[in-house]
Amino acid sequence: MKNGGGSALEDTARLLDLVPYITSHQGVAIDQLATQFGVTVEEITSDLMTLWMCGLPGYTAYELIDLSFDSGFVTISNAQTLARPRTLERNEALALILGLETLLEEIETSNVTLSHIIPDLISRLSMLIGEQAVLRVQAGTPASSSLRAEITSALESRKNLEITYHSTTRDEMSERTITPLEFISRNGVDYLDAFCLTSGGFRTFRLDRIEKLRTVATAAKKRGEHLPHEAAAGLEAPFIFTLNIFSRPRDVMERFSIEGHGENRPEIATVTSHSPEWAVREIMSFGADVVALSPPSLREQIRQRAARALRAYES
């Protein structure tokens, strides 16, 4: 909601768009208009008062826009000139095109209807802003859309889900039954917060690592209904370790979520993680551009794991 209205120009754009909307939704409720247009009921009422003063040259009752809105429902007449919606502005067309591109990436290619309709809509919208412009801003994102839709419906109907999950910490596939709680998004990655009935604790799952998913008939508990000891059982103690960053500092810091740049760039950093196994794997993937300083057990595990891999090359 905007406070006290935007600029005169934003107001004008909204007023122009109100006319075709009301024309195609005669008798629409004022509060629904406010929601659609993202402003308060007071602002919509003031908009309607303004529109009522507008019309064609002459400005007699025959030329002025006629509105009735005193009972909370709005009808409009004598507004033929503005009855068709305005063409899309550049950002509006771009928002739809990028949304469609994302959708296209996420549908299965076997869906013949959609894989025909979506490119056709993209090309029609492209005419509004130019083909060249469309090539210059493009979305190409990994899939998780149909998964998201199925989870949303499980959330709404309070159903449990059976998932096959790829745990990258241990590089293992596991079958779990979970109660979905909510979607969260961090650093551009989608996660699902859930209560995992298999392990008896709250868990967070990356959507792109859910390999399979099936809704099960059993009803889920609400968030507060899980017993405290169930929740506590699921929490692993945080694992804290120290790193010495020798090379590729930007990549290292992005991977371990370490803050700081320029003079604040740390050479030695302390990281809190959820598992020692994750720490071992992530540190090793940098191949000694980053070295673990502590705890000693972590250094030991890295050395042993590297030595074991080396032996495979000797044989």
């Binding site: 075709p20 909307y21 659609q36 919606p85 959609l114």
Partner: peptide, 27 residues
């Protein structure tokens, strides 16, 4: 959202029935 309002103003009833459940997200 404002693009949607303009599309809604065309007065065409949207038909979701024949579509699979989809929920794309742009980050």
């Amino acid at each position: 959202q404002s693009a949607l309002v303009k599309l809604a103003s065309l007065g065409i009833d949207s038909d979701f029935d024949s579509l699979p459940a989809l929920s794309p997200k742009l980050h």
